[in-house]
Every structure is written in structure tokens, then in C-alpha cells.
């Protein structure tokens, strides 16, 4: 895999009722601080719903799921929803192994995430 494939790219799309973050690449100990920074900026905006499109994420480790859990915990304080979309099989497996899947709404498409 190229060096670029190991990086994490994040693109935000703001809608009236939700902010969608399109993530692609890998979320590990190296890239999770970057993701955490993005999340902290987003939390300041207090969107009603945060949709994380993970369909482009090929690898996540425990620091990655931990960063997403931290986002969930912080947004619970102002009753925002965090919805995960398009998890690749191995990424979904990690959420299941750690039993974190029960704490999140997980959908296949962004349209479903808007309604979830």
C-alpha cells in the first residue's frame, strides 16, 4: 500500500440538520490525533447529528474506535446523534469485538443515516 493509503483524509459536508464527515484511509495511533482534532472542532459547532461515512476507511485500531467513542460521549452532553455509515467488514468486526456496536447507530447509506 502506498504511503498515501496509510494517511487519513477527512472531508466535511454541512447540512441543515447534520454534518457529514467523509473519512478515508486508516485510523490508528498515528492518525487518530488528527481525527480527534477534527472532532473537537466539530463539537464546538454542536450539530444535531454527526454522520461518519467510514466506507473509505480500510483499517481502524483501538485508538481509532476510542476516538469515535470520545466523540459519542462528548456529543451525548448536548443530545447530538452520532451515526456510523458504510463500515467495511473488518472495521465492523472491530466494533463487534469490542461490543461498541450496541452504543452506535450503524447504517449502510448516508440517506439511512439522515433518517436514523
Amino acid at each position: 500500500m502506498s504511503e498515501e493509503g496509510h494517511n487519513l483524509d477527512v472531508r466535511a459536508q454541512r447540512e441543515s440538520d447534520a454534518t457529514i464527515l467523509y473519512l478515508s484511509g486508516e485510523i490508528d495511533l498515528r492518525t487518530s490525533p488528527q481525527l480527534r482534532g477534527t472532532f473537537l472542532e466539530l463539537i464546538d459547532e454542536k450539530p444535531n447529528r454527526i454522520i461518519l461515512d467510514l466506507s473509505g476507511v480500510s483499517y481502524v485500531d483501538s485508538s481509532g474506535v476510542g476516538t469515535i467513542v470520545e466523540l459519542k460521549r462528548r456529543t451525548m452532553r448536548y443530545k447530538s446523534e452520532v451515526v456510523l455509515v458504510g463500515l467495511q467488514t473488518r472495521v465492523r468486526s472491530l466494533f463487534e469485538i469490542t461490543r461498541l456496536d450496541k452504543f452506535f447507530t450503524i447504517t449502510n447509506t448516508i440517506d439511512e443515516a439522515r433518517e436514523a
Binding site: 485500531d61 483501538s62 474506535v65 467513542v69 470520545e70 472491530l94 469485538i97 461498541l100
Partner: peptide, 10 residues
């Protein structure tokens, strides 16, 4: 529901 402490379990 909290971050951290998952590595060994995994």
C-alpha cells in the same frame, strides 16, 4: 462506553 483499555481485549 468509554475510550481506552480495549487493546488487550482485542
Amino acid at each position: 462506553l468509554r475510550p481506552g483499555g480495549l487493546g488487550v481485549h482485542i
